[in-house]
């Protein structure tokens, strides 16, 4: 029980690391995911091909492999960045593939007539998507995005193996100091629960807020 109180600083540092990693990666994943979804429904074939390749490669590769590719691969091309940035790139790109598919599923729930009406009025592809289709897709995309963000929070634990300070990695320090391993993990789990349940709560509120948007 005193594992937590005696190592408050270590836990807190790890907890903040996970929160930061999750938040920054989530922003990257959401922006990139919406962009790739736009590519996948674009009238321009090369864009659709790019979107398809992006999703299929990233979604079908183990995340750990992706971490290795980024952390060991990029420096070979002269790209040397802090480990935190490498981790954000790997997590963000990986998660963007899932965000893309959730957004695309949402786009498919919007009746095709909405897009046809927008195009008939002279709106460009970007205007049709941004002003008409995505706002209507948004509501149905909230629940799957929530799940994706929770998965992202948990996946961030892999970064611990690549020299990034985060919550799961704190167990190494604590077990070296001889603390009870079971309690060490219990408190780590509590930390993750705080983060993931908060994400659930936020997405639940968003779902409620946009419930009667029509």
């Amino acid at each position: 029980m005193n594992v937590l109180t005696e190592n408050w600083d270590t836990y807190w540092e790890g907890f903040l690391g996970t929160v930061k990693l999750t938040a920054v990666s989530a922003v990257l994943a959401l922006l990139l995911g919406v962009f790739v979804a736009a590519c996948r429904v674009s009238p321009v074939k090369p864009m659709r091909v790019f979107g398809g390749v992006w999703v299929n490669i990233l979604r079908n590769t183990p995340l750990t492999l992706l971490f290795f590719a980024v952390v060991l691969g990029l420096p070979r091309f002269g790209v040397v960045l802090p480990f935190f940035t490498f981790a954000v790139l790997a997590l963000g790109c990986y998660t963007s593939a899932f965000v893309c598919e959730a957004v695309r599923a949402g786009i498919n729930t919007v009746p095709t007539g909405q897009g046809e009406a927008a195009r008939s009025l002279g709106m460009t592809f970007g205007q049709t998507l941004g002003l008409i289709v995505l706002p209507q897709a948004f509501r149905s995309v909230i629940p799957p995005l929530g799940s994706t963000m929770i998965a992202l929070a948990k996946n961030s634990a892999i970064a611990g193996a690549f020299s990034v300070v985060e919550l799961l990695g704190t167990y190494r320090t604590l077990s070296e100091l001889g603390f009870n391993i079971v309690w060490t993990f219990v408190w780590i789990a509590v930390g993750y629960l705080i983060i993931t349940l908060s994400i659930s709560l936020v997405f639940g509120l968003m779902e409620k807020h946009w419930e009667v948007a029509r």
């Binding site: 009746p111 046809e116 009406a117 927008a118 008409i132 706002p135 209507q136 948007a213």
Partner: peptide
């Protein structure tokens, strides 16, 4: 036929 007004 189906109006297609922007429902939002």
């Amino acid at each position: 036929q189906s109006f297609n007004l922007f429902s939002h």
